[in-house]
Structure formats: structure tokens, C-alpha cells
Amino acid sequence: MLLDIDNLSLTITTNGLVNPILDRVSLSVDAGEVVGLVGESGSGKSTTARAVLRLYPETAAVEGSIRVGETEVLAASRADLHRVRSSEVAMIHQDPRAALNPVRRIGDSLTERLVHVLGFSRPAAAAAGLELLEAVGIRQPEERMRQYPHELSGGMLQRVVIAAALTGQPKLLLADEATSALDVTTQAEVLAILRDLQSRRGLGVLLITHDLHLAAAYCDRVYVMYRGRIVEELRGNDLFHGAQHEYTRQLLAAVPAIGHLPNSESRAS
């Protein structure tokens, strides 16, 4: 198993008040698998993903186990943690503009990890960067390398961020609402590219989203989170019809849908 979270509990105590954030969360992601994590704001989806990189407040009390490959993240040494963060797991967030330095060229942001962490020479890093931009479907990559973030559209930038995430050749990708801010057609494009990369490289993906239709259509398996707990685990295909838990059903019932849409040719590919 690539990622194995077992009975993870996380509590934060502020001013003597004990706040349980995660309550016995167990989930797993295998190589080559796309796993969805859905739920409402505050349910603990992002906290779970961040815990995989051991990113939580110092005041948090954490129990349980998070294994990334052979490494137990919660007990890892500095060197092991550094290896997990730099080359085994990559994370993509919702807003690509916040992930890229606005005053640096795309090429510099893209090759930063290669040069400073993985010890590539600059020309070798630039060549690897070009290859990655091509892999995420960016045309004229040489020109893009010289541009600044403000010169590119949101969809284009998110592809750059995905390319940058792949520079360390990670095995696991944590995508936290990575396509939520994009237009639907752009979202489909970015996800098609991600699917392609994922299957070619055998990546495991944990896709955090509030879009239940997306989770159902894109993920192999889906976990539903509610108030810090995993309440249900389903196959993506079964999300809309196989849900057993009352909360999942309520959530699904609230999803707006285009009424009486017959299986029209407009939806079929």
C-alpha cells in the first residue's frame, strides 16, 4: 500500500478547550489508484491530507499511524521526513497563483526543486522542466518558461503547478480542491492530463473535493468525511446510488442537478 492511514486522531487544545479535529480516520491509497475524499468545509479533509506531510500545528496531539511506503510519517526522523516531503509525496492546492512566486519566471519556479533539492545542474533541470511542461499539455513550453505567472491563465498555471509537483517523481499526489477554481471545460482538460500522467507513472492520487459528481465520475474509490470521521467508503461508480450512511444521502440530495436530463447526446462523449 502506497499510503496507509490507520486510526488517525488529531486534537487541538486551545485555551483549555479540547477540539477533536480528526477521529480515528483510516484510509488507504494504492499505487495507480485515484481515491476521492469528499465532505463539507470543516469535515477534516484538508487536515487529513496535510497530516500525510506531517503539517499540523505543534500544539496538535496526534495518535494513530500514517505510512507512506515503508516510512511511518508520524515517527519519522528529520531525514526521512525530508525525503517524504521532497520526493515521495507532492501536494497541489486550489489556487495556483498562491503556489507560484509572482516575481519569478515560470521556469525558475518549475526547476527550483530539481536544482536545490535533487542536485540537478541548471541545464539538466531546464531540460527536465521542458519535458514536464510538454507532459502536462502546454504548448510552446520554451516561451512559457520565460513568462511570469500573471501572464498565464488559471488553467495554464494549474498545469504548471502539476508539472512542478511531478519534478521530484513522487509516488503519491495529494490534490486538495486542485481544479475547483477552474472553469468546467478547463477542469476537464486538467483532469484528463492528470489521469494520463497518473496511469503512465503509476501514481497514487488522493483527490480532495467538495464536488460529489466529480468524485463519482473520476475516482476509483471515494471516502466520505463528516465531522472528522470517515463515515463511508464507496466505489466511485456507486457513490450516487449505493450510499448507505444517512449523512452521505443528505449530502447527495443537496447536490443541484440539471432536472430531467435525459441521457442526451450532449452528455455522451
Binding site: V184, Y218, I258, N263, R267
Partner: peptide, 9 residues
């Protein structure tokens, strides 16, 4: 419409 995630997406 075809871009919206859903069945047959």
C-alpha cells in the same frame, strides 16, 4: 454541458 462531471463524463 458535456464538461460537467457526471455519469458518462
Amino acid at each position: 454541458l458535456s464538461s460537467m462531471p457526471g455519469p458518462c463524463w
